[in-house]
């Protein structure tokens, strides 16, 4: 048989979808249960007083368990961010979009979330934002109950105070 003009197949694409059962553990289970009720919570370290969100049940810096629950508000500060323009196959979010590291008021650590209803070029470190939740009937045990964060008409937070605001948004 003449194989000269035949294209050699040396690889095939075989996409698979893996579904996992996620065992949350004590602190994340509590966190996700509260999210289901539309409440964002963290946990305070008994040693250094820092509030973790999402709580993982311990403070890695002190090596101790965190138990005290702290209810956080919807307001947060932009610690840093990026404007994502790279097209990724299968991504439901259309680029360009803002991925921001946000510190909710009353917490001492940032998490990553989406920012929207904003002018991308005007997003900045220290900017104030608030959570926009999905409609109540769509709430699940998931962080994306918060659809995104949008800018607030409030003065920027100086860089050295980011991550150090009380739950009322005031300087600690």
């Amino acid at each position: 048989m003449d194989n000269k003009n035949k294209e050699v197949i040396d690889a095939i694409e075989a996409p698979i979808y893996l579904k996992y059962k996620f065992t949350a553990g004590l602190a994340p289970a509590r966190f996700l249960s509260q999210l289901k009720q539309g409440v964002l919570t963290g946990q305070r370290c008994p040693k250094c007083d820092n509030v973790y969100v999402p709580p993982r049940g311990s403070c890695p810096a002190c090596g101790v368990a965190t138990e005290e629950e702290v209810v956080l508000g919807d307001k947060a500060t932009v610690q840093s961010f990026t404007i994502v323009s790279i097209p990724i196959p299968g991504n439901p979010i259309q680029p360009p979009y803002i991925v921001a590291n946000l510190v909710p008021d009353g917490a001492n650590i940032s998490f990553i979330h989406l920012m929207s209803e904003c002018v991308n070029e005007e997003v900045r470190i220290g900017q104030r934002v608030t959570a926009i939740w999905k409609p109540r009937e769509e709430w699940d045990f998931a962080m994306d109950n918060i659809r995104y964060f949008k800018p607030l008409d409030e003065p920027d937070v100086p860089a050295e105070l980011i991550g150090h605001l009380s739950v009322n948004g005031t300087e600690n």
Binding site: P28, I112, D144, A159
Partner: peptide, 25 residues
């Protein structure tokens, strides 16, 4: 995807870009 964080598909660049921005600041 993990339930306690949003799934943003940003890859390694999406993780390191905000850290670089903070360095520049």
């Amino acid at each position: 995807p993990q339930p306690f964080s949003v799934h943003l598909n940003a890859g390694a660049g999406g993780y390191f870009a905000p850290i670089i921005r903070e360095y520049i600041r």
